[in-house]
Design a protein around this nucleic acid. Structure first.
Lengths: 148, 148
DNA sequence: TATTGTTATACTCTATAACTATA
DNA sequence: TATAGTTATAGAGTATAACAATA
């Protein structure tokens, strides 16, 4: 109607990386919606799951595993602590051991259920073959790709 | 050495969505590095490419194709305009037709080369079979998944 | 009434630098 | 010296709400 057609030429459509980015951000938005109902962001949920599965771990360790920098872990953990979901227990003089509280463990179970439901929906959109192949491709990219 | 082992249990490793997210953000970081040398963010580069391939398109159209909201397109286009990369020409009374300037077209070519080189590196990490299968899986997810 | 562009605002995630203290 | 935690700060990206001008 104006100066351009209704469907634009998109030079990005040929780029595999762009397709991955688009799928990833759509997935993240959906996951954030689900976790938002529990009062958690995706980052908070992953940290909570990791602490719950590894009681006594430190925030540096968690950050290394999840590729979240130390400086960004501090406020994140403080938030979970303030909300009574996580306790920090001095183990070292310079580091804390992290454990989930009862509330934190309960919320963690709910978050894990939400994340697994989300992932089941995702996997349900793929054929068995496509799913296996996607896993293989992602593993290859994680090995070669960035360390992070 | 502290209270925890060196390798943590990671309950997220089983989640396909989490693997996609990790790969995607590593790819984005790498792409941002390359485009940063040209003074562009990935968003700015995608917008520039799209305008260059569709002279006269409007910012609403670009936003729709790239899944960037109108409200977020405004400052983005203004930035490209200020830098002399893009021109806005009234077509409608309420909308502008967008075209790249000579400088913008030149920068666009460089950005496209950087993005294609990045994508070639990515695709080089995959076997022919894995690449084909990844494309198929991503297409399935884009069809079913979010509209965005 | 619906659409375009815009402004304001806020939140999440990420990044760097610098500081304290502990090992 | 290296590491753990922290603080401050900045910049991207994204989201909603509201408004004016126009179709």
């Amino acid at each position: 109607m104006a100066a351009s057609d209704r469907s634009l030429t998109n030079p990005l459509d040929d780029l595999l990386g762009y397709q991955i980015r688009r799928v990833s951000s759509a997935l993240m938005a959906d996951l954030a919606r689900g976790l938002g109902e529990l009062g958690l962001t995706p980052s908070e949920a992953s940290v909570l799951l990791l602490i719950d599965a590894n009681p006594g771990t430190t925030q540096s360790e968690v950050g290394r595993v999840l590729a979240i920098q130390r400086a960004n872990m501090a406020p994140l953990i403080a938030r979970l602590d303030t909300r009574g979901l996580v306790r920090r227990e001095r183990v070292d003089g310079r580091s804390y051991g992290l454990v989930t509280s009862d509330d934190g463990a309960a919320l963690c179970r709910a978050a894990k259920a939400a994340m697994e439901a989300h992932d089941a929906r995702l996997q349900g959109q793929l054929s068995v073959r496509a799913r296996a192949c996607l896993v293989e491709a992602l593993n290859a990219l994680r090995r070669e790709g960035a360390d992070s």
